[in-house]
């Protein structure tokens, strides 16, 4: 079972308290009427499915109830960091200095 650090509660909690909510940083289109079929396909269905560093959303369902983002290695399942929703997508592992939600 994964131990996940909730950046709002600021403590690691077991996976069963959380719900997985898919890939992070997929912005809902501002201009849906103008989108082509290919753009809708990308927005709705196409996913990075990264083997390695993966940006994803989790929700602390049985805790504070809030959505947050995480960077996890999908080969080892190790969390690199979690950070609050709305924080910009972090860059490479060693270059990011944003809100780590309490862990680095």
């Amino acid at each position: 079972m994964l131990l996940i650090h909730c950046p709002y509660c600021d403590e690691p909690r077991p996976e069963i308290e959380f719900g997985y909510a898919g890939e992070a940083h997929i912005a809902r289109p501002i201009n849906p009427d103008d989108l082509s079929d290919a753009e809708w396909e990308t927005y709705l269905f196409v996913r990075t499915n990264a083997r390695g560093r993966h940006f994803e959303r989790w929700r602390h369902v049985h805790g504070c109830g809030r959505f947050f983002n995480a960077v996890r290695d999908t080969v080892t399942d190790t969390f690199e960091r979690t950070y609050k929703a709305g924080v910009a997508r972090p860059g490479e592992a060693d270059s990011w200095t944003g809100d780590t939600g309490g862990i680095v």
């Binding site: 079972m1 996890r72 080969v75 399942d77």
Partner: peptide, 13 residues
């Protein structure tokens, strides 16, 4: 299991 992974293992729950 609920999350994207290539680890070929899952959680006990």
């Amino acid at each position: 299991d609920a999350y994207v992974s290539y680890s070929q293992r899952g959680a006990l729950h």
